[in-house]
Simulated assay, not measured.
Amino acid sequence: MSPRINIGSGDGNSSRGVLVFLVISVAIAGYGGYDYLQQSEAVRNAVEVDATVVETGVDTESGRRGRVDYRPTATFEYSHDGETYTGNSVFPGSVTPTYDTESAARDVVADYEPGDTVTAYVDPASPGSAFLKNQQTDTPVKLAAIGLVGVLLTAIKYVRS
């Protein structure tokens, strides 16, 4: 006999759905928290290096409810401890912000023209992951909050059942 976990009305499909939603919510919150810590560490440990801008631009992404989101992009080359790298992160961390308008995304990379020598930032513990703006974004916090809201909604559903 295997143990059963009942969440919700007792309907097996409903219970599985709630459990899947809970697991996804916890994963989203955890990933947001993890990326926030990664950003903090990268900014805290960053050293400046000279970089040459290769290209900048704006990527478009299909957002929620048919909306379009815009993500600033940049490619740059830099050296650290005698090794040459190519970077493509405007901000530290893996969760980068998107913008509602193309012009807002372009403003983020407006100071970076191809061929320009600019300052990039490198965490010596991860020299292949440089970034151009030595500042944290609020995107990981928003992601963690979305995940926590999912956990809260699951808890409310469970308590009401």
Rank of each mutant, 00 (worst) to 15 (best):
R64M: 08
V23S: 12
V53L: 02
A74S: 07
T154P: 01
T137S: 12
D81I: 00
T60Q: 12
D35K: 09
V151S: 02
F76W: 03
D111C: 00
S129D: 15
S126Q: 14
R4M: 09
F21I: 03
S62I: 13
V95F: 06
D107K: 14
E113H: 07
A51P: 06
Q135G: 10
A125E: 11
L132H: 03
N88P: 02
A120W: 05
K142N: 07
I24V: 15
T117Y: 05
G115R: 07
R71G: 02
D11R: 03
N134M: 02
G87P: 09
G57K: 07
A51R: 03
I24F: 11
Q136Y: 07
R16N: 15
T96N: 11
N45R: 14
R160L: 07
T73C: 00
S161N: 11
E113T: 13
G10N: 01
K133E: 08
P97V: 03
A51I: 01
R4I: 10
G30F: 04
I156E: 00
Y31T: 13
G10T: 03
P114K: 00
G32C: 06
V159Y: 05
T96D: 11
T101V: 09
V54K: 09
T75Y: 14
P3H: 08
V108E: 04
A144W: 05
V26H: 05
V18T: 10
V20S: 11
G128Q: 01
S94K: 05
I7P: 03
E55K: 15
Q38K: 14
E113D: 12
T119C: 10
T137D: 00
D123H: 01
V159A: 12
G87C: 02
L132I: 06
K142T: 12
G82I: 09
K133N: 04
Y36G: 10
G93Y: 09
R65N: 14
G10C: 04
T119L: 01
Q38P: 02
D100W: 10
E83K: 15
V54T: 12
V95W: 02
R64N: 11
E102T: 07
T86P: 05
R71V: 11
H80D: 12
Q38E: 13
S14C: 09
S79I: 00
E55W: 09
V26P: 09
D11S: 13
V49T: 04
P127G: 01
V151M: 04
E83D: 15
S89E: 06
Y121H: 10
T119F: 02
L152S: 07
V109H: 06
D123T: 03
G87N: 08
R16K: 15
Y36N: 13
V109E: 02
V109I: 13
V90C: 06
I156N: 00
V159R: 13
A104D: 13
L143Y: 12
A29V: 12
T60D: 10
G8V: 10
G30I: 10
I5N: 06
V43T: 13
G57I: 02
A51S: 03
I156Q: 00
P92Q: 05
A155M: 00
V23W: 03
A120C: 05
S9R: 09
Y36R: 11
